[in-house]
Design a protein around this nucleic acid. Structure first.
Lengths: 243, 243
DNA sequence: CGATGGATTGAAAGGGCTCAAAAAGGGTGG
DNA sequence: CCACCCTTTTTGAGCCCTTTCAATCCATCG
């Protein structure tokens, strides 16, 4: 189903190159991280718990994760989805304590990346990378605001449309989605925890989106037939001026 | 109604002293900022617009502000409330472009504080202040996650109870609230834009809170009769382990 | 071929919204 | 100090979106 699977290094280049043009030193930097052994986590396992002292940052190699907050008895609200190439627990997330619980949504592979913490501290030493990290933080923040807008002022239909636009945009930026197609390896229950709806209603809303010919779903992927229409329906805005 | 109004410098000390003990150099730092002339904005005026290139950071001297995102025709969702002592547009908010629109909720007085940007860049030069800024960012992030939980998985009653707990906690931390009393200079419409409800329903929910004897309202202040009860009702958690 | 987790469907109840209008404040100018 | 205007708060009633509770269907897997 998925054409060419981009290598982890390619994902890193796409992800960070978007913020500042790549140079030779950068390749070495990414290579060092990419060369490290992976840690594996099964779906729905927990990486960090809110309130704990956080550990060093790491990067997602493959699989999806999320940060979330939990209420009593299995009620949770996911605040952001973390995709391959995203950094977990960098900057804000970990100082002094984890601000949210991070857990795997699918089977997850990550590598640790302590150098990100030091680049962040000594911004002067590697200015290009420092700028990227700031921009990355800003973008992450942008998506948090997006999530707030989604939950506060959108119908179920708009929430899901908007979420799909976000996922498409973010995945496309690192070579993990095509023009009209992106992976969605989540259960409807997990989607419900993102958009703050019941599973049942997520199901019905997805059906509506399909019935109306906006999307199709097949084997963990979503095909988008009318991206601009979906963006209008979800009142989607991207973090950059251009697209 | 309000006992002793803390000076701006006192607010700054409370706000930043919470993250790292104050020393002599800090007083000079705060004094320099506090000595600067104020800029004034009327209620509901706009400081920055989402997507614009941001300017240097500034600190709120008095009044409340918010960052928000707007949809068509006057629909908006406030993502965070900014209180006296809070920094506007520092770190994340401004690089490379403003992530949200910032506007005044009440009459607002601010001072510019470029030094915050430089402290942030050269973390090594003033490590104590650097640590504080990181912690402050982390706390701000914590409240964003709180807002997401509020909007995604709470009833109207829980949302407002939780919001009041947050405001009480944050204001108390800078000497602007007592044990059982905090200012709330917002219209019900503004509250509605925070908690993602209609004005009408905010009104009814406030009535319910009053009828049940949890709170009382008088002249722009809220008296809390049973803080721990309110916290339970709103599933409130604070950003620090202790309280 | 059961077993299991996920997707789907039906029906009823509820919470929150909308629309519209009245009541209550709060300023302002005379 | 009063009259007047504009904003904010309050109230009523009906509707609709979303939830809840149960069951059923479906696919994958040992």
């Amino acid at each position: 189903m998925q054409e060419t699977i981009p290598s982890f290094e390619a994902i890193l280049s796409d992800r960070f190159g978007a913020y500042a043009p790549l140079e030779d030193g950068d390749k070495a930097f990414f290579g060092k991280i990419a060369g490290r052994p992976r840690d594996n986590y099964p779906a729905e396992s927990r990486l960090w718990t809110e309130g704990e002292l956080a550990r060093h940052p790491c990067v997602i190699v493959s699989g999806w994760a999320c940060s979330a907050r939990e209420l009593a008895q299995g009620v949770r609200q996911i605040s952001e989805i973390l995709l391959p190439g995203d950094v977990i627990g960098f900057g804000i997330e970990q100082r002094p304590r984890a601000v949210a619980t991070v857990s795997a949504l699918t089977a997850l592979r990550i590598v640790s990346a302590q150098e990100i913490a030091s680049v962040w501290r000594d911004r002067q030493l590697t200015p290009r990378m420092g700028v990227r990290l700031e921009a990355m933080l800003a973008e992450q923040n942008f998506w948090l605001h997006t999530q707030i807008m989604r939950l506060g002022r959108s119908s179920a239909y708009g929430r899901i449309a908007n979420l799909f636009c976000e996922l498409h945009w973010r995945l496309a930026g690192r070579g993990l989605a095509t023009e009209s197609d992106f992976p969605l390896p989540l259960t409807q229950e997990q989607v419900a925890d993102v958009v703050g709806l019941s599973v049942v209603h997520v199901n019905r809303t997805l059906q509506q989106l399909r019935r109306e010919g906006r999307i199709a779903q097949e084997k963990g992927r979503v095909r988008v037939f009318d991206l601009s229409g979906l963006r209008t329906a979800g009142a989607f805005t991207s973090p950059v001026a251009s697209d």
